[in-house]
Write a protein that binds this DNA or RNA. Structure first.
Length: 430
RNA sequence: GCGGGUGUAGCUCAGUUGGUUAGAGCGUCUGAUUGUGGUUCAGAAGGUCGUGGGUUCGAUCCCCACCACUCGCCCCA
């Protein structure tokens, strides 16, 4: 019997959950601070929801199965189709713009490598119904607030920002053969991953003319917004959107994160405007988060057309980055107080004390059997409890116990009825 | 999908040029201390040597396949 989880799947032991909850809490708090509303969707979807959008190629990567009534189902590989489904089904009853978020487990059957498993949790932020670039700005500033909450900064993380629309304009201005636009996108996406000679070979294979290849490389040389402006002019909406977005990010205090990169393309399938991808500066990891504008997706699924902006932020890469940067939190216990007793005759008093404290909002670990003090204190240390309330036969006779502060070592005998008040006061002081 | 590396106690790793009872540190448990933890000391438990097959008198060690992890490609985001 193999007791390991299937390939690419993870288990979370209690000590792992401390870290996972810490990450999820930061995501949730940042989303709520920016007034995003949480939603949730079923993990299992009708398979066709993904096939329609993703096309034939990705079908093999979907965990798909038939139920006992021969329904074709799938574990979701990503959230955007499910979000679109909800938005469409809500119809006009949904006040726009809608700012929604969630943390979702997604599945993909693919080769596992560092930073990429067959299952991961993903924080999704989406704004539906806002065509202005202010939507991109809101999503990004919310996301970057989490980056800073993790303890990261623009010294470690950069966001490459590009625009598919701008790329198209650039190539149009250079009279690039638009029939090869998709080929150009594919090649641009490989910039930096393979040598320029290989890029050229790839383009030749696609029957791109020598002239067009030169044009494409001219676009690749664009390193700044000014360079782009020289080609598309100052009236380009695509370029002005990027400029405006950067202005908004500057006003939000996040300017230093952004790097203009004409070669950022991302999902060719449904991104229509600005796209972005965050990477660690040292280049050790895969993309930390990524997203962009997808104005055509809803209508492609049969819904009313709505402008949308969204991003996905996975838990696997950020975990590895935080580990590398030594920013993961030290395991911190949530237990405030351990209540234990030395004689069976004191059990009911201990139970009563625990119930009172729990009603008053104190996290209590109650001993499940009578134990020797040595064992009690050892256990209290292990679970990280801040206080121990120890009831012996002498104290029990007076409805009291011995309250010990494990940090200072101070202890005093107090009444069970005074326990919760006493502990609360001490916790507030810390 | 292709190629390299790794797999020995719960964890990090030694080791065996193929030979009886496979080791250490950390962790766990017990005791010193039968009403007081973190330190110290003593002791104990814990191993199909990743799985299966082959070669051999004998395999944890050599060979093959598979599984898992990992690095680099391919593909993809």
């Amino acid at each position: 019997m193999n007791l390991e989880p299937p390939r690419g799947m993870r288990d979370f032991f209690p000590e792992d959950m401390i870290i996972r909850n810490w990450i999820f809490d930061i995501w949730r708090k940042c989303a709520e601070r920016s007034a995003f509303q949480q939603y949730d969707v079923c993990v299992v979807e009708n398979r066709e929801l993904f096939i329609r959008k993703a096309g034939e190629e990705v079908v093999d990567q979907i965990y798909a199965f038939e139920d006992k009534s021969n329904r074709e189902l799938a574990l979701r590989p990503e959230m955007t189709p499910s979000l679109a489904r909800l938005i469409i089904s809500k119809g006009r009853a949904l006040p726009l713009p809608a700012k929604w978020f969630g943390i979702f487990q997604c599945f993909r059957y693919e080769r596992t490598v560092r930073g990429r498993k067959r299952e991961h949790y993903q924080w999704n932020l989406d704004i539906v119904g806002e065509k202005e670039v202010s939507a991109e700005a809101e999503v990004l500033r919310t996301c970057l607030s989490s980056i800073e909450a993790f303890g990261l900064s623009s010294d470690i993380v950069k966001v490459r920002i590009g625009s598919r629309q701008l790329l198209q304009e650039l190539l149009e201005k250079l009279s690039f053969n638009q029939n090869h636009f998709m080929d150009a996108c594919m090649v641009l996406d490989k910039k930096g991953k393979v040598s320029d000679d290989v890029l050229k070979d790839l383009l030749v294979e696609k029957d791109v003319s020598t002239e067009d290849i030169d044009k494409l490389f001219k676009v690749l040389e664009i390193n700044s917004i000014e360079d782009a402006e020289k080609i598309v002019g100052d009236s380009s909406t695509a370029l002005n959107d990027i400029i405006r977005l950067l202005t908004l990010m500057d006003a939000s205090g996040f300017k230093d994160y952004f790097v203009f990169d004409v070669a950022v393309i991302r999902g060719l399938a449904y991104y229509t405007g600005i796209v972005f991808e965050a990477f660690d500066v040292k280049g050790r990891h895969r993309a930390i988060f990524g997203g962009g504008r997808y104005d055509k997706l809803l209508e492609s699924l049969g819904g009313e057309s709505q402008p949308c902006v969204g991003l996905g932020f996975g838990d696997v890469v950020i975990y590895e980055l935080l580990k590398d940067e030594n920013l993961l939190p030290v395991e911190k216990s949530s237990v405030d107080l351990m209540i234990a007793y030395m004689d069976e005759s004191s059990e009911l008093l201990a139970v009563k004390a625990a119930s009172l404290c729990r009603k008053n909002g104190i996290n209590v670990s109650l001993g499940l059997q009578s134990q020797k003090p040595k064992k009690i204190f050892t256990n209290a240390n292990k679970i990280g409890s801040k206080f121990v309330f120890l009831i012996g036969s002498k104290e029990a006779e007076l409805n009291s116990g011995n309250l010990k502060d494990l940090n200072s070592g101070d202890q005093e005998v107090i009444l069970v009825t005074d326990l919760s008040q006493k502990v609360k006061e001490s916790l507030e002081k810390q």
